[in-house]
Design a protein around this nucleic acid. Structure first.
Lengths: 138, 138
DNA sequence: ACAATCCTTACAATGATTGTCAACAAGTTC
DNA sequence: GAACTTGTTGACAATCATTGTAAGGATTGT
């Protein structure tokens, strides 16, 4: 699984929101600047985060985005999965609906890729945005 | 890092060669059948394995391919790296010549992707084709 | 009303991946 | 040495995902 740019952008945006101390709303243009993401791309990314319940938005003057949960309750895995779909490095090693593959492969290579997949999920799942924000502050 | 089809095909081919008991040469069409890979693609993959010293080839009648080393000395990491390049899940987290990224990201997200990268490399590096062949035989 | 802001959709450009093919080089068999 | 078998090389079209942009719509505050 290669992390797409949009996925990266989404994680940056959530991080920037997690760093905002006073529960302030940040408007899209401001977010775009802080994360160095093209505003036109954030325009597509933010609504996805919104309908997933990660962030909450307000329109009109003084509107913007803010986190919808404590940063400690948002894992990196959640964001990545939202934009990325399967986390396996190859189609026949996904957990749901794996692509078919020859028996030879299913008995030898597939378990290895599954191991990579699980190790990846493990890391992403135990990394919260509270932790990421803390690291970013140093 | 998403495993490309060619990379997958290469690992299959090496596995099939590792499974060949009597050090027999296997010709390309035979390999293609056993691994369920289009012969025209193996045509491109095998020379790469050859010039990397993984396999050895013989031309003419009764020609074909065979492993150039004991299967225990060929790691999955070697093959994947040969076809795949960097193993990091995102451009700014590679070991050599990482793409630039904002400071914010370099201090928070990048270390996580580096951790994923290292976990991946670790698994691939300790998996040899002797092991894969053993698993395939069950 | 007006301005600020988020929302939705369509889209063009780009680039990587995938598989195919044809011509060639090298070895084996008779 | 003629014919056959096999690997080698490079060019190529089709397909597909990704990336960024733009334009118009919806909602809210002043």
């Amino acid at each position: 699984m290669w992390i797409s740019r949009r996925t990266d952008y989404a994680t940056r945006a959530v991080l920037a929101l997690a760093l905002e101390e006073g529960d302030q709303a940040i408007k899209l243009d401001e977010l775009a600047q802080r994360t160095e993401v093209p505003a036109s791309v954030l325009e597509q990314v933010m609504p996805t985060l919104r309908s997933a319940g990660i962030v909450r938005s307000e329109r009109g003057a003084h509107g913007g985005y803010r986190l919808n949960k404590p940063p400690a309750e948002v894992t990196l895995e959640r964001i990545v999965r939202l934009f990325q779909g399967p986390l396996a490095p190859i189609g026949y090693a996904t957990r749901r609906n794996p692509d078919p593959c020859p028996d030879l492969v299913a008995r030898s290579l597939r378990p290895v890729w599954a191991e990579v997949r699980d190790a990846t999920i493990d890391i992403l799942d135990r990394t919260t945005f509270a932790e990421l924000a803390a690291r970013a502050k140093d």
